[in-house]
Simulated assay, not measured.
Amino acid sequence: MTTRQRVLTGITTTGTPHLGNYVGAIEPAIAASRDEATESFYFLADYHALVKCEDPERVQRSTLEIAATWLALGLDTGRAVFYRQSDVPEIPELTWLLSCVTAKGLMNRAHAYKAAVDDNRDAGEEPDQGITMGLFSYPVLMAADILMFNAHRVPVGKDQIQHLEMARDIAQRFNHRYGEHFVAPEAIIDEHVATLPGTDGRKMSKSYDNIIPLWLPEKKLRKAIMKIKTNSLEPGEPKDPDTASVYAIYAAFAGPEQRQAMRAAFADGIAWGEVKQQLFELVNAQLAAPRERYEALMADPARVEDELRRGAKKARAISRPLMDRLRAAVGIRALG
């Protein structure tokens, strides 16, 4: 096993990246991938996407958009392993091996499954109405993603902690039965991760329809920023930056001196329109060059495909030997 710490992150391919994704996940992950002490794995979780998305065109389009986003923002694929989940056939094979040691009772306790059952009961339906095995078995596939590369650490939100605990449990069960093959992964919970407010003041989320897409053209970006909800305080009236969505977004993109200057401007009663204009200029300046790279990649999907195939080759150089050992361990071997 590797002596460097392996860190693994999956990105589900069901949507278009927005400013919140950029600040809260993509930018910090790309920065972390430059750490010499770690070996970074980033994958497009297209099998996971099938659990909640039945639109094939959306899954394919999202895969291209997300891959192009990470590449445009400077992910060094020479250092990191950047691949598409479905390009590594050992992952679904491992999912089956792990399924055969995973207790159904463990899956019964999964938050997503329990929430779906509760929703059905509240609606007067049968408890398992409309629940697929994809949803039920999702934690096993996630465990396979992690254990396939013996990731030491996995950055997750608080809603995913249970899945990491399940992955540890499944790894321990397999090791107990078939010998030591897997390390027990640890969840990395970043309490300080930036969560951006959306245009309505709530957390920026597709489900709230309040996002600002990351790659809007300049004019549309300005228009979206101008729609951010503010209070009715007039120009000249002091304003509180700590309760203003527009300041929270500004602070996520600004440096310390810029934040200090903007806080002073709030105290002096800066007009909301001027705050939004300055926010637009700040965000646009940071995204202008990456936007050009993104648009070039979107116009050349074959180039993105080549990057993903190279990443899959690197990933499979690890997954194939491990899978050979695991097959042998469970008794799936040549007969002579």
Rank of each mutant, 00 (worst) to 15 (best):
D122R: 04
M166N: 10
Q129W: 12
A167T: 02
A116S: 12
Y113T: 03
W96T: 15
Q129I: 14
V140P: 04
R153Y: 12
G130W: 13
D119P: 09
L97R: 03
D122M: 13
P92A: 09
R109P: 08
L98P: 03
A116I: 11
L106Y: 06
S99N: 11
V154L: 07
G134D: 05
K114P: 07
M142W: 04
G130N: 11
M133I: 07
G105D: 12
M107A: 15
R168V: 03
D159S: 10
F136S: 02
G105A: 15
C100W: 11
A116P: 06
E165F: 11
F136D: 07
I146D: 09
V156S: 08
A110G: 11
P127D: 12
T132G: 10
Q160N: 05
L97Q: 03
P92D: 04
I146Q: 04
P127Q: 02
L98H: 00
D119Y: 03
N150K: 00
L106G: 04
T102H: 08
A112E: 14
L94D: 01
F136W: 10
F149I: 11
G105V: 05
V156T: 12
N150E: 05
M148D: 08
F136N: 06
I170H: 02
T132R: 13
L94Q: 00
A115C: 02
Y113C: 06
P139R: 01
G134N: 07
A167M: 07
M133A: 14
D118Y: 06
L98N: 03
D169Y: 08
L164W: 00
V140H: 01
G105P: 01
G105E: 12
A167F: 03
A151E: 04
F136R: 08
V117G: 08
G130K: 00
L147H: 02
G105W: 13
A123C: 15
T132H: 09
Q160I: 03
D159P: 00
D145H: 11
A110Q: 07
V117C: 08
A167C: 03
A123M: 12
H152V: 04
A103K: 14
G105K: 04
D169Q: 09
R153G: 06
L106W: 06
L97K: 02
D169F: 05
